[in-house]
């Protein structure tokens, strides 16, 4: 009797939440995106923009020893906020929580080395690209195999950060096609976990964004990027609330301005050169 009650309660809870869930951002009172007020208005009224990031990903975003946020994405966003004439407030949280936070209106937008993906596009919107990066395949000291093309990893144990576009690429191109066995792919919540396992030999190769890969090369002796290619990555975009055209227009405008003025190139030099 008791077990039945529990099951019933759970079924009700799950059904209720599924019915109550809407893929569109539930911020406004009505759910017609085009006619609802844009976040831009509230940002301008408040004079403040709340930006989410996962500051555990140098050199894109991290903290210095005094706890200040530093990195490519950080400085870029600061420049954007300055261009908009508003103050910038950072909200840090684990990478996996960022999309939900934008959807749930906890933050106005997010910059965190996001790549565009169709799946994510159903839940949020993206700005125009602010930078283009590549994927890297990273190995540790003593690696004796050959990785001349991406498909060469199917004979190896592969590591990737979960929820990233590299994860998506590996899943759709190698796992779903049966080329790479599920048990040979290890997904990690964070890059540092993946790096430790790579060093320990629990995985043979990591697939990740080239820029943090270079960072790891400088941190771990013997780490080496054997291949870089534009597979899953390419453009980096800022994540925006779904359907908020006015905000997107403003952000895109700011990005273009920074590209034109050479600011972005300047930041890239600062953070990405060897």
């Amino acid at each position: 009797m008791k077990k039945g009650l529990i099951l019933l309660a759970l079924v009700i809870l799950i059904t209720g939440s599924l019915l109550g869930c809407q893929p569109e951002a539930p911020l406004e009172q009505t759910s017609n995106p085009p006619s609802s007020p844009s976040k831009l208005d509230s940002i301008n009224t408040a004079g403040k923009i709340m930006v989410g990031t996962s500051a555990d990903y140098p050199p894109y975003e991290s903290v210095d020893e005094s706890g200040k946020y530093i990195g490519f994405d950080i400085e870029l966003m600061a420049a954007i906020a300055e261009g908009m004439g508003v103050k910038l407030e950072w909200v840090d949280m684990p990478f996996d929580s960022l999309i939900a936070a934008v959807q749930e209106n906890k933050i106005d937008l997010s910059i965190s080395c996001f790549n565009y993906s169709e799946e994510r596009d159903q839940q949020v919107d993206f700005s125009e690209a602010y930078y283009t990066s590549k994927d890297a395949f990273l190995v540790a000291k003593g690696f004796s195999g050959t990785i001349a093309k991406p498909e060469d990893v199917v004979t190896l144990k592969v590591g990737v950060q979960s929820g990233t576009v590299q994860d998506d690429w590996l899943t759709s191109n190698l796992i779903d096609t049966g080329l790479l066995k599920e048990e040979n792919l290890s997904r990690y919540e964070r890059v540092d976990q993946a790096a430790l396992d790579l060093q320990a030999g629990r995985v043979d190769v990591l697939m990740l964004d080239e820029v943090p890969a270079k960072n790891l090369v400088s941190q771990y002796e013997g780490f080496n990027i054997v291949l870089s290619a534009e597979l899953s990555t390419g453009p980096l975009n800022i994540v925006l609330p779904d359907g908020d055209v006015a905000l997107k227009a403003e952000i895109d405008k700011q990005i273009k301005a920074l590209q034109d003025s050479g600011k972005i190139e300047e930041l890239a030099q600062k953070y990405f050169s060897e």
Partner: peptide, 23 residues
């Protein structure tokens, strides 16, 4: 609550570990 983004002990350890490389 680190998962919600509260800057408590664990989250801070993650952040400083990432930026310093000393996890």
């Amino acid at each position: 609550v680190y998962a919600l983004g509260v800057p408590e002990i664990l989250r801070r350890a993650q952040l400083i570990g990432a930026s310093s490389g000393s996890y």
